[in-house]
Design a protein around this nucleic acid. Structure first.
Length: 1021
RNA sequence: GCCGAAGUGGCGGAACUGGUAGACGCGCUGGAUUCAAAAUCCAGUGGUAGCAAUACCGUGUGGGUUCGAUUCCCACCUUCGGUACCA
């Protein structure tokens, strides 16, 4: 019987859907194992062959663990809030929920057809109110918490209030805003309730703040730092500007050190840990206060080189620094204001683009050096960033290249404080070889000694202390968008944020007419007519009922307040979903304590490394918070993580040209117009790949008049009704590389020209120069005769719709089946590595499956036989290798092993059930449909999914002889079959006695003979 | 610039802790089957020289350690990813 993959796969997918064999129980005698995929954002484009790679790997591992007797949790869901559905809504008016629902249907169909063993009964969707109820709930928990640096964990805000009442805040070591005022217990008690709330906001783990944010005008929203790439938005590539706005923030910086330390406890890829480590960016140094002359203000700076403090010859503030306007002298005022304004106008990208340009302005003010008491001029310059450290630096030109360049540019002193170092050309930043000079009490000390000493001295005079600074910023948590989680927040009579009571969650997303910002520039939720909170009846009511009580007096307060108009960012919903899967239908709690106590954490998490500084960092942060609050037992949510590599596409390129300019005096005036008319009529020419490679450099202008390119000339001359002499007139043209859809190209890189024209109608009249030099145009006969071909260029690129190199898994499944696709994706190469897709190669694994199928056909007639020694050896070496490979996530090599195994068993004409049954189990994680079918044919009525994994037995592999490679000076020359138990001396004797040995020695006596028993013999001559 | 990963046939890749480089598959070449094609099967396939046995050269480049290096050490080149005036 033939291998009919379509029927087989349909049959088993139906059975799995009906019987739900992969449903995990929250209680079991078996050990637990939790395999998690990063849940997808259901985009409108559906899956391409790159997407399932990680899912296939995790599914193999999950199925393997079931064979190994584990109770496996392998859930799947959707990260279904997000920008694309909302952008689509803006364009079409279609509600994002509808778009999302449709996309999810497509995803589900595509996932189902690949035979994944997901427990769909646990599906979550971040946009489902029953799910985001708990996202809102966590937000409230964060709001009600502060970070105690002494206990090094999050604690309840009531405890903080109790301490304020007892001792004020001066002794409390908390993570809080820099501008938090100091107060005593008495003062605290005097504060109004509103003032108390304002102060508490400076301590809460989620808080409102005026922050410099990344504003994307094109999207009408702010984005977090990790959503900005090269100064433009990650999605859409829109420009970003800095803007000060009141936003919800997450105090992730409180956890900076723990996020760093935790990395040592988890088995995640080192590159990913490095990325997080760089992102957190810990640096040790000191904070130093500089007094300002004739002023009460002090400038605080952070430096990693306090040892160079005597080399500070000026100070630089970021243009946004709050002291700038306060200290600038009247004479400098105009200049400074102009500079500040100019900097604010420049976009982030502009600022990044010209790092080289040095700019700055003197404020007119002077600071006082803490030790020498000398005056130090204070400048502002945009090379100092407002967002890092204190937004101010002490500039030591002799030790820092940027300070050096700035000083040189503005003619500021560059005192040298290093012994025996020439700084006439550049700054000296080599810490290891530093000996301090011209620095009073630091003279003669090295870097480390000097740092210790200077920090001591600074502490003595109360102008500084050792400090650890982090690059990590608090995360902006507000988005001015519609399609996200609403904040469970309303604003009271004082305009202060108040949390809804937990029992009234979820606060559901309201309906709006338009998904765009309001006319007054409010977020889209401002368009909702019912978006106010009635605190008496605890429900959402019409906006019209809101009383402006703050203005009209509290007696008019009817308890109805406006709700927050921002929504939460994309990462909110994905920061705890892995825990929610443990108990996804619980309406009382985010998850029951029984469920989390059983499942604990994720054992294996597979997903892309692009989430390193977003999802994976925020999730670790929330997990640590949940750990502090005692909701989860582990401070890290995933023990092991693997980044699957990207499957890249093989793009196809066509080469288009058109003449662009005549460089001749003769045609300067009148004829120029006729040339442009001519241009309209001249067709595009597409030139085949080899012609291009021989003659052109792409994207470079080519002078036409040099007597070259007769084919191109011929075509253009045929349209030359204006009698332009193309031969002599120096016509320039450029070759442009254009993507062609890969489906229009066959495996020999030949373009289907007619299909291409149909696909891009603007080129329907184009002319093609073919490989054999012939010309193909509208008048060319399509059929008959030998025609040349048009060959495309090929390049490996990221698979994406815009590059027309996307391969759809639906087509592959249709042609070869899901098992073939699964095997092939694994066979392509190591999981972590990026590798190009090439559909042609799939025939290899497909014919493997056919051979496998054939191997079992003998059993249909009830034929069975004792296994031969060879077959047992083949089986057991396969068991050993496959088991090792799966444990090491080396799935590509086990597919090879299967092929070798089946080739060997076929050669051995194996018809033994004792071999074929275990083999079916080995294959089952990789190709589950065919394995189930074969298992059934072997007479089993239960699914193969829980059949115990075959046990490897060494005894079948033991050999009595070994074929030794015999090498001379490291070069293998011949082989010798010798008993495995032969000792060193006997082997040497046997080898030396061999006739071939004499031949290769050519009469010389060997200097040395190296015998490694069981491995190799090397004769050194 | 800094941090990280990787460079092996025409292509994807294999080679366990230093021990027969190129497993397995694609592609290609020749053959069988077929009216023909697809499918299937058999043989060959790193390069150079040779009818051949065989020899020499070969894991980005240059050096080193070793009886022996794709594997270890040093320097460099290239590609990809992260980050970027981080004080």
């Amino acid at each position: 019987m033939e291998y009919n993959f379509r029927d087989i796969e349909e049959k088993w997918q139906k059975k799995w859907a009906e019987k739900e064999p992969f449903k995990a129980e929250n209680d079991s005698d078996k050990p637990k194992y939790y395999v998690l995929d990063m849940f997808p954002y259901p985009s409108g484009a559906g899956l391409h062959v790159g997407h399932p790679l990680g899912y296939i790997a995790s599914d193999i591992y999950a199925r393997y663990k079931r064979h190994k007797g584990f109770n496996v949790l392998h859930p799947q869901g959707y990260d279904s809030f997000g920008l694309p559905a909302e952008q689509y809504a803006i364009q079409t008016g279609q509600h994002p929920a509808i778009t999302t629902e449709e996309n999810i249907k497509t995803y589900r169909r595509q996932l189902d057809q690949l035979g994944f063993s997901f427990d769909w009964s646990r599906e979550v969707r971040t946009s489902d109110p029953n799910y985001y109820k708990w996202t809102q709930w966590i937000f409230i928990q964060l709001f009600n918490s502060w970070y105690n640096n002494d206990s090094d964990k999050a604690e309840a805000i009531e405890d903080l209030v109790a301490r304020f009442e007892k001792e004020g805040n001066s002794k409390i070591n908390a993570a809080c805003d820099d501008d938090t005022p100091t107060f005593s217990a008495e003062e605290w008690k005097q504060f109004s309730e509103a003032d108390k709330q304002r102060i508490l906001l400076k301590y809460r783990l989620t808080y409102l703040a005026d922050a410099e944010v990344n504003w994307v005008p094109a999207l009408g929203t702010v984005l977090a730092n990790d959503e900005i790439v090269n100064g433009v938005s990650e999605r859409g590539g829109h420009p970003v500007i800095r803007k000060k706005m009141t936003q919800w923030m997450m105090r992730i910086t409180a956890y900076a050190q723990r996020l760093l330390d935790g990395l040592d406890t988890i088995d995640w890829p080192q590159p990913l840990k490095d990325i997080q480590e760089n992102w957190i960016g810990r640096s040790e140094g000191a904070e130093v206060q500089f007094r300002i002359q004739n002023s009460e203000f002090r400038i605080s700076v952070f430096t990693t080189r306090p040892d160079t403090i005597f080399g500070a010859s000026f100070m630089t503030l970021a243009p946004e620094h709050e002291l700038v306007e306060k200290i600038t002298t009247p004479e400098q005022k105009a200049e400074v204001e102009a500079y500040v304004e100019a900097t604010a106008k420049r976009s982030e990208r502009d600022r990044m683009a010209d790092v080289k340009t040095i700019s700055g302005v003197f404020t007119g003010a002077y600071a006082k050096h803490p030790f020498t008491k000398e005056p130090i001029p204070i400048w502002i310059g945009d090379y100092v960033l407002a967002g890092y450290g204190t937004g101010a630096v002490m500039s030591v030109p002799c030790g820092d290249q940027r300070d050096y360049d700035f000083a040189k540019h503005f003619g500021i002193d560059i005192p040298n404080i290093f012994e025996g170092v020439d700084i006439s050309e550049e700054a000296f930043a080599d810490k290891a070889n530093t000996v301090i000079a011209n620095s009073d009490f630091l003279n003669g000390l090295n870097y480390q000694e000097a740092i210790r000493k200077v920090i001591d001295e600074l502490e003595k005079i109360g102008q500084g202390k050792g400090k650890i600074n982090y690059r990590l910023r608090d995360a902006v948590f507000s988005r001015q968008r519609y399609w996200g989680e609403p904040f469970p927040v309303y604003y009271d009579a004082d305009g202060l944020p108040q949390m809804l009571d937990e029992e009234h969650l979820p606060l559901k997303l309201p309906e709006v007419e338009k998904y765009l910002p309001t006319e007054t520039g409010e977020p889209p939720l401002g368009n909702a007519t019912h978006w106010a909170w009635d605190t008496k009846n605890n429900k959402v009511v019409s906006n019209d009922l809101v009383t402006l009580s703050a203005v009209e007096g509290s007696d008019k307060d009817n308890g109805i307040y406006p709700l927050e108009l921002n929504t939460m960012p994309g990462w909110a919903g994905s920061s705890q979903y892995f825990n929610r899967y443990m108990d996804p239908h619980n309406d009382e709690e985010i998850f029951s304590q029984e469920a989390i106590a059983y499942w604990q954490d994720v054992d294996l998490y597979i997903g892309g490394s692009e989430h390193a500084t977003g999802h994976l960092l925020y999730s670790r942060f929330w997990q640590k918070f949940m750990f502090d609050k005692g909701y989860v037992p582990k401070p890290e949510f995933a023990k092991k993580l693997i980044n699957q590599g990207m499957i890249t596409g093989t793009s196809a390129f066509v080469y288009r040209t058109k003449p662009s300019l005549i460089i001749s005096n003769k045609y300067e005036h009148d004829n120029r117009k006729s040339f442009h008319d001519l241009l309209e009529k001249i067709p595009d020419i597409f030139i085949t790949k080899n012609y291009i490679e021989k003659n052109f450099k792409i994207e470079r202008k080519v002078n036409f008049a040099k007597g070259k390119f007769p084919e191109i000339k011929e075509i253009w001359n045929s349209f030359n009704e204006y009698s332009l002499n193309l031969d002599s007139e120096g016509l320039l043209f450029e070759i442009h590389k254009l993507h062609a859809d890969v489906s229009l190209v066959n495996s020999s890189d030949e373009l289907d020209i007619e299909a291409f024209k149909k696909w891009q109608p603007e080129y329907k009249d184009a002319v093609f120069i073919l490989e054999d030099g012939s010309i193909y145009d509208r008048n060319s006969p399509l059929e008959g005769g030998e025609r040349g071909v048009y060959k495309v260029g090929r390049e490996v690129e990221k698979m994406s719709k815009s590059k027309y190199n996307v391969v759809n898994p639906d087509d592959i499944v249709e042609d070869y089946g899901a098992d073939s696709l699964r095997l092939y994706e694994m066979f392509l190469g190591p999981l972590e590595q990026s590798k190009p897709w090439n559909t042609a190669g799939i025939t290899g694994v497909h014919s493997f499956l056919k051979k496998l199928w054939k191997l079992y056909s003998s059993l249909e007639g009830g034929v069975d036989s004792e296994p031969t020694k060879e077959s047992l050896k083949t089986l057991h070496k396969t068991i050993k290798k496959v088991e090792e490979d799966i444990e090491n996530f080396s799935f590509n090599t086990s597919v090879s092993t299967f092929m070798i195994c089946v080739n060997e068993l076929t050669a051995q004409k194996c018809t033994s059930r004792e071999i074929l049954e275990p083999l079916a189990i080995l294959v089952s994680p990789y190709a589950p449909h065919i394995a189930e079918e074969l298992w059934e044919k072997l007479g089993h009525s239960e699914s193969i999914a829980y059949a115990p994994f075959p046990k490897f037995e060494e005894k079948y592999l033991v050999e009595s002889t070994k074929e030794y490679p015999i090498s001379f000076n490291g070069k293998m020359r011949f082989k010798m079959e010798l008993p495995t138990d032969m000792d060193r001396e006997a082997i040497e004797e046997a080898v030396m006695a061999h006739e071939q040995t004499a031949k290769y020695l050519e009469g010389r006596t060997p200097k040395k003979v190296i015998v490694v028993p069981g491995k190799i013999v090397n004769i050194v001559g």
